[in-house]
Computed example of a mutant assay.
Amino acid sequence: MRFSSVSALMALTVLEAIATPVTPPDLAPRATPTVYLCGDSTMAKNGANDGDTDGWGQYFGTYTTVSVVNKAIGGRSARSYWNEGRFADVANVVKSGDIVVIEFGHNDGGSPESNDNGRSDCPGTGTETCVSDATGETVYTFVFYVIQAAKLMTAKGATVVLSSQTPNNLWETGSFVSAPPRFVGYQLTAQKALGANVYFVDHYQAVSNMYKKLGNSATNALYPNDHTHTSPTGASLSAQAFTQAIHTNLNGTTSLGSYIVSNPPTVY
């Protein structure tokens, strides 16, 4: 089933989407959960598809005791992943007890009202809407799309982990500069709106802590072509930072905590 930008959203008002939680049905869970990853090229297999980079989702399974399915796709935002029906595709295979990690932000900037690229979300944290100057569609906020996606999963009995985007190269200028993009806070806003069965992991902060420890030269070596996409080594380290954040309860407990390997790596 595919969701268009209009039909997928007509069933719920924006206010209902922000304020109304979904109670998962009483479904028979799997014997062990499967973890599904939804994100962009920083998470996806082969990263930017340039032969030099990879996404951290390819390495997270090394540090878990359950199966991990990487559904991340390069170039996507929360909006375009929703509009293309990719969240719906994941929801169609999710079973009760599964875990879905959602991480976007790198492609969500810009304005849909000015040279809309089909990825930009409407600015804001709640009921704001915009009209695309390219298609005329109503565009919603990052928080709205994430909440809708999380509700699809929790309706199937899954739990959801909202992960903030990985940082760009924080040593790019030669000095360590960490300024979280607004989408980091937006993920936390979505988690607080949803409450039960939805968790938050500040992946941005975990990787930022790691980069500060690594230093200038070692961090720059992880970015072969640009300031966003890392080498396979960098992707593996980002997966380790995510794992450490979960294992040490950086942002509180999550549904992933019970499925991290014993003695995972410490990278920050």
Rank of each mutant, 00 (worst) to 15 (best):
L15P: 00
G57E: 14
L9A: 08
K45I: 15
A8L: 00
S7G: 06
G47T: 12
L27D: 11
M10S: 15
G47C: 12
M43T: 01
V14K: 02
A19Y: 04
D54I: 15
D50V: 06
V6C: 01
D52V: 03
T13P: 03
L9P: 00
D54F: 08
C38M: 06
A11E: 07
A44D: 11
L27S: 06
D40G: 05
A31K: 10
L27P: 08
N49C: 14
G55A: 15
A31I: 11
S7H: 11
S41T: 03
T42H: 00
M10N: 09
T53Q: 09
V22I: 14
A8D: 07
R30T: 11
G55L: 15
A17H: 02
A11L: 08
T34D: 09
P24N: 01
T20R: 12
A44K: 00
V35D: 00
G55D: 08
A8S: 13
A48L: 05
S7E: 02
M43L: 15
T34K: 04
P24E: 05
T34R: 06
I18Q: 13
V6A: 10
G55K: 10
N49M: 12
T32I: 12
T23K: 11
P24V: 04
L27C: 05
T23R: 08
D50Q: 14
M43F: 04
W56G: 03
C38Q: 08
E16Y: 09
Y36K: 02
N46I: 03
T34F: 01
P21F: 13
A31P: 01
V22M: 08
L37H: 03
A48Q: 04
